[in-house]
Design a protein around this nucleic acid. Structure first.
Lengths: 155, 155
DNA sequence: ATTCATGCAAATCGTTTGCAACCCA
DNA sequence: TGGGTTGCAAACGATTTGCATGAAT
């Protein structure tokens, strides 16, 4: 039982919820697959290896709890399913995703130049920004190269 | 038959597609509801008023065509359904959405400070950005006020 | 013992698809 | 006339829900 498990157990208790083997297995799976943007189905497949009797519903129900606790964050990668990533700490909070429109790969950037813009929004729109989601679409390194090569063949 | 209808008809013809009453009605609905972020279902309900026999499938199929032509843009407002907005012109391209987490309202900001960041991404990640999606979550003007008022009652 | 959590299957929601009838070019 | 288009309903994939059973405190 690691540190995160203990934190999780405390959080659950303080909400009158129980620390079950399934919930523990799901959180551990999230920790062992950081930066992977797993879908509920993928988490299900991983957890099933050691807990064959688990059901998908438990994955969905647990992810809701983890998200509500701020231990996990739900993101949208435009592939029609939910994606979840570990919410390690606050500084980790502001990273953005690079989605390759050719191969579908997802990488990350950590810059955050949005504070300034958010102040401006508060002043001009009277809207208080508490969070944001930024996605960049384009071509990853590998696909840029394969496009370059494909063009050369036609020369 | 307005200007956009003519453009639409030409675009359809150039692709070997037909200019039907249904397609026209759907594009007109999009134009009459700019900045509304309509879902396919909502578009369906509006179009149905004047074309009671239309089916949802036609809405979906037509939106795909309009999106492919660049006349319409699909966005994601985290409510589990697709949302569409008119893609009026290129300058209109870079606006972002402000999503109120209390009342769910969606407004817009037009600033775009991302070019600089995208250059940096190209250099450091070798990822060529061709498009982006930016969403800000927080509290709209009205909800900020109601929160303020609620707090005062407790004083 | 009590109350919450689970697995299962059925239900739901948004979207897509197959197909026969339809209609624009 | 012929091939794209439509409405309908069935199919689909992701997620949610009801419920009887099972497990944590």
């Amino acid at each position: 039982m690691n540190n995160s498990d203990i934190v999780f157990e405390q959080e659950l208790k303080s909400r009158g919820l129980r620390f079950t083997a399934q919930r523990r297995a799901i959180l551990n799976t999230m920790m062992e697959n950081q930066r992977k943007h797993l879908s509920p189905e993928e988490i299900y497949d991983i957890v099933k290896v050691n807990s064959p009797d688990i059901g998908v519903a438990t994955i969905y129900r647990t992810l809701l709890i983890l998200e509500d606790m701020g231990l996990v964050r739900k993101i949208n990668l435009d592939d029609g399913k939910g994606r979840y990533e570990l919410n390690k700490n606050q500084e980790d909070h502001h990273h953005h995703h690079l989605i390759c429109e050719k191969c579908g790969s997802v990488s990350e950037v950590k810059y955050d130049l949005l504070e300034q813009l958010e102040e401006q929004i508060l002043k001009e729109n009277e809207f208080l920004v508490t969070n944001h989601s930024v996605k960049f679409y384009g071509y990853c390194k590998d696909c840029l190269e394969s496009i370059k090569n494909a063009k050369c063949e036609q020369c």
